[in-house]
Nucleic acid binder design. Sequence first.
DNA 1: TCAGGGTGTACGACAATGTCAAACGCAGTT
DNA 2: AACTGCGTTTGACATTGTCGTACACCCTGA
Lengths: 254, 254
Amino acid sequence: MPGNIQSIERAAAILRLLSGPTHRLRVVDLSGELGLSKGTVHGLLRTLQHVGFVEQDRESGKYQLGPALLHMGSSYLDGNELRTRALNWSDSLAGRTQEAVRIGTLHEGQVLIVHHVFRPDDSFQTLDVGSLLPAHATALGKVLLAGHTYLVAELAKRGFASFTEATISDEGRLERELARVRERGWATEMGEMTHNQVSCAAPIIDRSGVTVGAMGIFGPPERLLTARQPRGELLAYVRDAARAVSRELGAIPW
Amino acid sequence: MPGNIQSIERAAAILRLLSGPTHRLRVVDLSGELGLSKGTVHGLLRTLQHVGFVEQDRESGKYQLGPALLHMGSSYLDGNELRTRALNWSDSLAGRTQEAVRIGTLHEGQVLIVHHVFRPDDSFQTLDVGSLLPAHATALGKVLLAGHTYLVAELAKRGFASFTEATISDEGRLERELARVRERGWATEMGEMTHNQVSCAAPIIDRSGVTVGAMGIFGPPERLLTARQPRGELLAYVRDAARAVSRELGAIPW
DNA sequence: TCAGGGTGTACGACAATGTCAAACGCAGTT
DNA sequence: AACTGCGTTTGACATTGTCGTACACCCTGA
């Protein structure tokens, strides 16, 4: 790997920090975190500001992400084949199941939500598109991990965070769970990330056979489950929809 | 303005091209467009790919935007004070008016949609968050331009595109329209961007008195208009909501 | 009112850094 | 089989970004 442009890598590191839990950071915070001199960070920030990637709060002097990123994020979605192909199918899946639908793909070992259809009722729901979810604690993530085995060992180094008492945070148990996912062709998750919230999902596969995404529904257990298992008809709808999208992507019907 | 880091500016230019109408571009397209050597562009792309800002379609070799941008875009929204403060008010505005609500801010002379609440019925609607709309052909844009007068002359240099026969594409007419917007405190738009689609909007003002955003509703004329003017009660709701958000931002009540 | 520590910002000098043009390998065409 | 187009790699040059220091500014507390 001959030469990566380091000023760009540093700029990206700054943006990554700014998209973390603290949305506004000072120059010294960034320079400390990155181990760079104040002046260097300031130069990077100035150009990032000039291109609209960051903006500065004139009162506090702190820096935050800029509007250009929002537009580029939505442009990414427009060009994303997975999402484009899945648009219709996810709508009809939501209609059939009467549940919220999400489509995710892997990004840095987490699940990036690229599409989200609200549950078709009038309840207030917040859009998850653009969110990063933990892979080991969501049905979408399990499906994706099942298709990219090498990742599990890598993620294990950082450890698997526990969100509820149901979270699978042991590598061995997770591996066994993923093996089941692979053989059955779908995954479930039972309150492993949020209490009173369960989900199931199936893989989306492209023409070369790799799992490029996952599609699933989520909601309260009393609606999705019978006898501690996903209701059969819901599961069938999910798997059918994911298979339909795969076929649109050029996968050989299976 | 001593020294902007040019590799970052060039990287940003690449990303801007990739977020244009053509979502997949080749190295030569980019190098031609930017006037840079193929090798340079390739180096930039490699680094951008490494940080997840672009990805390469392995079959065609073309480059497109990457998933990291999606996450950063949504992170921008999380940290955006305008949107955060407006969340509740836009929901209630949509409920009261039974119409779709949008909130926009200025970005590079256009209207960047930072929030969008669907019309509360079951019709299929596509999310506009992240979209860039022309400022001169939307009610949101007129409100924003009315608060940033200097921009009109600047935009006039590039010309005002015509979308329908109602579009105001003459600078003088637009200036007069904006003067009316300023004195009335709200703007309308009647099929000037899309046929059979009208909108009205009011300004959102921060503690220092500058117009930082605009909030409005849009929909078919038969629901929004009476006698070729926005229905009084809808307009009142819009203005009330925008004023409420302004107050949350610290603006002095007026 | 005046020091003090904190911040964001500007300025240089040095050399590490990114750039360019030319060459390579690999497709699909002709 | 030669050719044209692409993405990619290489290596030498000097442009470019980096670093430390120094400045201007805003708070805080005495």
